[in-house]
């Protein structure tokens, strides 16, 4: 089954990706069925609890999974129509930082403490672009101004002289300076306080508009996703469990896990006695349930759920869910969901 991406062609197309870590204790199936598309100019949110595989998914796109122990064992990653799953490090280097950029969760530690901001920006430019140091410096100043840093001598300063919010702006500047087609932001605001968070999100949105850069925004904060994203992908234990546009997902969450996530958002207007949280724990990566991975925590769990793996199923237009609840008897008996999704 294939369905059109809202805004034109997809820049990133991950399908049924499987990625395992071969460790001494056993095989960790960190990614086991991730389908994800990011359209041209689109902002897609990837949400899920800690450890569900969000960072591993994004590092796989960048080709930055430590190998060994990690290895892609199935599925594909296409960037701008090209299959990049088995590209060598040398090939990946050509698009890293130029066509796909990434910013990370920890602005305090993501910049090298021993080099100046200018050095690190100029380096990012000159790996990909033939230009003089002077040109790279003026390019750096221009992009820094765009991300809201106008400060005398900034290029000569070291990371420790900047605040966390400033550093994240520098990271964004570094990621955006070559106007990449895709920006992956792995929890870019988690480490920052609320007002700075809003500023950084605003900044990303305006860069998205100005440069047309697609953004894959990773977070565990549904509030952030609701504001920013055209489409939302929910992950649980290494799989995508639901995908829909933001409005649909919030109005009509279909997967029991998504429902739980939405219920656990604190609401200011209601007089909640206790904050809701999904009962139970994320399954241990070495000991995944046979059937539906959410079964041990699901309040709607059925017989089938325990021994048959559900597939992603289109429950309404442009709304996918990985749950037996929404699939006909026939599908359940065949032990497979919509065959075309695999």
């Amino acid at each position: 089954m294939f369905w059109g991406v809202p805004m034109g062609q997809s820049i990133l197309d991950i399908s049924t990706l499987e990625l395992h870590f071969f460790t001494e204790k056993g095989v960790i199936k960190a990614i086991d069925g991730v389908d994800l598309k990011v359209g041209e100019g689109e902002i897609v949110g990837l949400v899920g609890e800690s450890g569900c595989g969000k960072s591993v998914t994004s590092l796989a796109v960048m080709g930055l999974i430590p190998t060994p122990p990690g290895k892609i064992v199935g599925g594909s990653i296409r960037f701008s129509g090209q299959e990049i799953t088995h590209w060598t490090n040398k090939q990946m280097r050509k698009i890293r930082g130029k066509d796909i950029s990434m910013i990370f969760q920890e602005p305090m530690t993501s910049l090298n403490p021993l080099f100046t901001i200018g050095d690190q920006l100029v380096e990012a430019i000159r790996v990909h672009k033939k230009c003089s140091k002077k040109e790279a410096q003026s390019l750096s100043l221009a992009i820094l101004e765009k991300v809201g840093i106008k400060r005398v001598g900034i290029l000569k300063q070291y990371p420790h002289q900047l605040s966390g919010g400033m550093r994240q702006r520098v990271m964004i500047a570094m990621a955006m300076v070559l106007e990449p087609r895709l920006l992956i932001a792995d929890e870019p605001t988690t480490a920052l306080d609320v007002t700075i968070q809003a500023q950084i999100l605003d900044l990303m949105r305006s860069l998205n508009r100005e440069f047309g850069t697609s953004i894959l925004l990773i977070t565990h904060d549904l509030g952030v996703v609701a504001e920013m994203c055209d489409r939302i992908v929910v992950m649980y234990a290494g799989q995508v469990v639901e995908e829909a546009d933001g409005r649909k997902l919030f109005k009509n969450p279909s997967h029991p896990y998504t429902q739980g996530l939405l219920k656990s958002i604190p609401k200011l207007d209601e007089n909640q006695k206790r904050l809701y949280s999904i009962p139970g724990q994320v399954p241990h990566p070495l000991n995944m349930p046979q059937g539906c991975r959410f079964a041990p925590r699901c309040e709607y769990v059925m017989e089938t759920c325990w021994n048959k793996k559900p597939d992603l199923y289109e429950i309404e237009q442009e709304h996918l869910s990985r749950c037996w609840l929404h699939q006909g008897k026939e599908a359940i008996e065949n032990g497979k969901g919509d065959a075309d999704t695999t």
């Binding site: 930055l64 280097r93 050509k94 930082g97 990434m102 530690t109 090298n112 403490p113 990271m171 570094m174």
Partner: peptide, 15 residues
């Protein structure tokens, strides 16, 4: 293992 080395790789720098 540090974050800034990951950043350096993410820029596309050679090993």
């Amino acid at each position: 293992r540090s974050d800034y080395i990951r950043t350096a790789r993410a820029k596309g720098l050679s090993e």
